[in-house]
Write a protein that binds this DNA or RNA. Structure first.
Length: 347
DNA sequence: AATGCGTGGTG
DNA sequence: TCACCAAGCAT
């Protein structure tokens, strides 16, 4: 034993003290009941499952009763719970165990995982809870807890990240108390280590949690990558005499509605529209900005003129460079404005 | 490796 | 309102 309680020991102690102990599928070693709960709980929250679980057990109290029932009856008691392949596989699995294994459950994770509807994690949960087998689960809760505790980067659905998580999960297994440990992982993930607003102050692992130490608990695990946003490009022309800049009021609706932005378009076209022919041009660089529905690359040209030109267009106005940033311009425009130093009076 | 599969809760 | 997510698995 190390002087400092390990992840595993801390979690086991916490589960015994503060974990959940009265869920309908706890306090039993009946593999049938444990299996049924694990299947129902796939991608489905506890509060949703409980009434279905209780009703299902009343109708199909044993593995044999389930195997003997027609599939339609099983579907009927699953209706509303979703992911109906689970119900079909559940029935197939019951039939297979009764027919092929004479009603005896295999105890090894590998054998369990070869049954219909039972994957690696569900097999481990059944093995641990029903048979006390030392087996690692890796569901959404465990992924979240491990990603945070070890500050594991990357989307957990990605194969490389998932491999790393399975390796961690296997390494952390306790020598004994596998039930409390396995339940503790799920309890912690479901109660304290929630996806949003985790209750780190109540967490027994807070001190050693890498995500918490770096203030990134809520940022991990890394969210599922979204499909790439459409790319757009806009060129903006900053016309200035060194003191003031010409901005244009955008239409009230649409992107940047009602805000002030420099005239948009090719430099030559903008100058022609404004009737300016004597500007000296210099590039202002580019900037990237993300919206919810597209990504914008902004480029800009500074067009210096000697004196402000009278503009007839009422949507255009001259704004002092010092106050332009506060006059109601969108963030990326404000950033570009910061690249134009107002001309200082000679000392 | 990436998708499809259902429904209910959440901020 | 709506995107995101929840005790995953099969293909």
């Amino acid at each position: 034993m190390s002087a400092v309680p390990s992840f595993t020991d801390t979690l086991i102690a916490w589960q015994k003290r503060a974990g959940r102990h009265d869920l309908p599928w706890q306090n039993t070693r009946d593999p049938y009941r444990i299996w049924l709960s694990e299947i129902m709980l796939q991608q489905t929250q506890v509060t949703t499952v409980i009434p279905y679980y209780l009703r299902f057990l009343e109708r199909f109290p044993t593995l044999e009763a389930l195997a003997a029932a027609p599939q339609e009856a099983v579907i009927e008691y699953w209706a509303g719970l979703g992911y109906y392949a689970r119900a079909r596989n559940l029935h197939r699995c019951a039939v297979e165990i009764v027919a092929v294994h004479a009603g005896k459950w295999p105890k090894s994770v590998d054998r369990l995982a070869s049954l219909p509807g039972i994957g690696r994690s569900t097999a481990a949960a059944i093995a641990a809870f029903a048979f006390g087998e030392r087996a690692a689960i890796l569901d959404g809760n465990v992924k979240r807890v491990l990603c945070r505790f070890f500050a594991i980067e990357g989307f957990p659905g990605q194969a490389s990240v998932e491999r790393a998580l399975w390796a961690r999960a296997e390494t952390l297994l306790p020598e004994c108390d596998i039930e409390a440990y396995t339940q503790g992982l799920m309890d912690l993930g479901a109660t304290l280590c929630s996806r949003r607003k985790p209750h780190c102050n109540d967490c027994p692992l807070q001190q050693a949690c890498q995500a918490h130490r770096t203030g990134r608990a809520e940022d991990l695990p890394t969210a599922k990558p979204r499909p790439a946003l459409p790319e757009r490009h806009g060129h903006y022309v900053f016309v200035s005499d060194g003191h003031r800049v010409l901005l244009e009021r955008r239409p009230a609706h649409g992107i940047w509605g009602g805000l002030l932005v420099p005239p948009e378009g090719e430099t030559a076209a903008v100058l022609a529209r404004l009737g300016i022919s004597d500007a000296s041009e210099s590039p202002l660089g580019t900037l990237r900005h993300s919206f919810t529905h597209f990504r914008l690359t902004l480029s800009a040209t500074l067009c210096h003129i000697d004196a402000p030109k009278a503009i007839a267009d009422p949507s255009l106005c001259w704004i002092a460079l010092e106050s332009a940033a506060e006059a109601g311009v969108p963030t990326p425009i404000r950033k570009l404005l910061e690249g134009i130093a107002p001309a200082r009076e000679a000392q």
